[in-house]
Write a protein that binds this DNA or RNA. Structure first.
Lengths: 143, 143
DNA sequence: CAGTTAGATAACAATTCCTGTAAGTTAAGC
DNA sequence: GCTTAACTTACAGGAATTGTTATCTAACTG
């Protein structure tokens, strides 16, 4: 995702309006590696601007998603997570605490032989690793 | 997933009761490669037994899941899909029509170097390919 | 720099997918 | 055939998200 300042300019170029609510969301997403949900972003926004509705947060997140600035990830944790990290990477999902980590992989086998694809045109490939994060693993050993 | 007859026996062994509703669901799942949702299974069940509730379908599907006979898949298509195919495979999800196909892959690179995992203990790795299925691709070309 | 207006916001209701509850019904073992 | 745990149904409820609408405001316009 671009910097908040660049997003402001980009929004104006696209005929979208720049509101304080949106700027707040831009800042909260910038360099954010926590894979936040709309709900968690909203919780942070509300600390600064108490009247902002969840709907506004969803709308802004979806606009950023449509513009390719962030990705919505459905990792089976109940709600969609938003990721401003647009470099190619994959995810580690803790089956216990549901935190999401990033992992950078070169997966040669993902260059698939066309025969196995049977006409399917691949846009992208996501790899999701499920297991225990280091914290939950450690706690698990203690119990 | 095992055959309907085997499931009947297995349910009884496990102290679960075998009802006509459940047997109907067993048959609908057997050799089913369509990755049905609870809703779509229910639609089929109702054709044969009009009074069956969606709740009953969910309950039976979850029991089969708990027994390891089917897998629940959250592929970001809105609802959970159930897959009786228990061999190791991955999925092709059409971003247009949301149908789900199977793909069999050997992914050597998924034997990850422990350094990139930073203490994360991997249980399993799922690969989801998103793109256009052959039907949607063809239609896309025509439009 | 006030007026205009497309677009954004907030409050609220609705939707979708799924789960909890409670009361009636049935399969399996005796 | 009786008992009882388990199943089924109807219905309510819940979480995540989206639709609606009236109000408001950013940014353009003169």
């Amino acid at each position: 995702m671009r910097s908040p300042d660049e997003l402001v300019a980009l929004f104006r170029e696209n005929g979208r309006k720049v509101t304080p609510q949106r700027e707040c969301i831009f800042h909260l997403l910038h360099n954010n590696r926590t894979h936040p949900t709309a709900e968690s972003i909203h919780a942070e926004v509300v600390k600064r601007m108490p009247s902002v509705s969840l709907k506004t947060v969803y709308q802004t997140l979806h606009e950023l998603e449509d513009m390719g600035e962030i990705s919505g990830l459905d990792l089976g944790t109940g709600s969609v997570r938003f990721d401003p990290n647009q470099s190619v990477h994959h995810h580690l999902v803790c089956t216990n605490c549901h935190t999401v980590g990033d992992i950078y992989l070169e997966i040669d086998s993902l260059q698939l032989a066309s025969k196995v694809l049977q006409g399917f045109e691949v846009g992208n490939a996501e790899v999701t690793f499920r297991g225990l994060c280091s914290d939950c693993k450690r706690l698990g050993n203690l119990i």
